[in-house]
């Protein structure tokens, strides 16, 4: 098992390297630069800035410098948040994003699996139809619509919850962004669970369990559910990575100081280092969650062996 984990982490290094390389050059070949503002800077200032940030050097040298610094955990200074390094920015924002993302994941997983299971057990009933319609609504309405609508109803019209901000980090501040973040994923989990549950309920071994007089609860929970969870678990990795690295939309709407905003802000402002930092962050999250999910998968399914 340990060997498996080490091997997987080892194989992550080349992937990470390629991701960094592609992003680096893609970013640099895009027109414009971090200091091309609407009102052009005086040439002297520009030159100065370029020198400070070593942007006047040949591209390959910048690349080498970036790589060698990145290995030591130094992702360079941010160009738009001039007083901070990228590592600092991410370090500050990440805890908020992770906390919010974790709650959203929990909500999406529990809610989605419950709804999907109910829909599968009552296949083609009115209940099934309503749940699936709800799931369709969840996947189709973008969260930049859900966010403002939630704010309008719960914060402005009913004044039940704060409209945004992190506040003291208590639940009341988290509820609305959490729902906005979780809704599309909840819908995916519900659809996924329904599909795999229906398939699991048609499996031969479920017929065996029924033929042996096991109570319906046992048939569904012990035998069908566990098998049906396998595709759900697979989806957990990309979903968790996406939720916990923050969402630009939700963080903007609810003014949450997470890392999701940096990504879009960085890209729009050609803040090379900030974008690279977020790219590496997301890639690491994807790799780590994939590993976690693979281990989880192995625990759930004895046919999968990690040795």
């Amino acid at each position: 098992m340990i060997a498996f984990v080490l091997r997987r982490l080892g194989s992550a290094v080349p992937t990470l390297f390629i991701v960094v390389t592609i992003s680096f050059f893609l970013m640099r070949f895009a027109p414009g630069g971090p200091f091309n503002l609407e009102r052009p800077l005086p040439p002297a200032t520009m030159e100065n800035l370029m020198r400070t940030y070593q942007l006047d050097q040949p591209l390959w040298r910048q690349y080498i410098t970036y790589l060698s610094n990145a290995v030591t955990g130094d992702f360079g200074p941010s160009y738009i948040y001039k007083d901070n390094t990228v590592a600092e920015l991410i370090g500050k924002g990440l805890p908020y994003s992770i906390e919010l993302g974790f709650y959203a994941l929990l909500l999406a997983l529990v809610g989605g699996v419950t709804m999907g299971t109910i829909a599968a057990l009552r296949q083609n009933s009115v209940l099934d139809f309503s749940i699936m319609s709800l799931a369709t609504v969840g996947t189709t309405i973008p969260n930049f619509v859900v966010g403002p609508v939630l704010t309008l109803i719960f914060a402005i019209m009913l004044s039940l919850l704060p409209a945004g901000g992190w506040g003291d980090g208590s639940l009341s501040f988290l509820i609305l962004p959490m729902i906005a973040l979780a809704l599309p994923q909840l819908a995916v989990f519900a659809r996924l669970t329904r599909g795999s549950m229906i398939e699991a309920l048609h499996a031969d071994h479920i017929r065996t369990a029924r033929a042996y007089g096991l109570p319906a609860r046992v048939v569904v929970v012990t035998h069908a559910m566990r098998g049906a969870m396998l595709p759900v678990v697979s989806y957990l990795a990309p979903c968790a990575a996406a939720l916990m690295t923050g969402s630009a939309v939700v963080e903007t709407i609810f003014t949450i100081p997470g890392v999701g905003r940096y990504f879009v802000l960085g890209a729009l402002n050609r803040d090379y280092t900030l974008v690279m930092g977020t790219v590496v962050l997301i890639a690491i999250f994807v790799i780590v969650f994939n590993l976690v999910v693979d281990i989880l998968y192995g625990l759930l399914d004895p046919r999968v062996r990690h040795d």
């Binding site: 390629i18 991701v19 879009v264 890209a267 994807v286």
Partner: peptide, 19 residues
């Protein structure tokens, strides 16, 4: 394909659109 997958999807779109 796997490598392209692990590139954050939004990043690709944003960079390409900016580009």
């Amino acid at each position: 394909v796997e490598i392209l997958y692990s590139l954050p999807f939004v990043f690709l779109v944003v960079v390409l659109v900016v580009f």
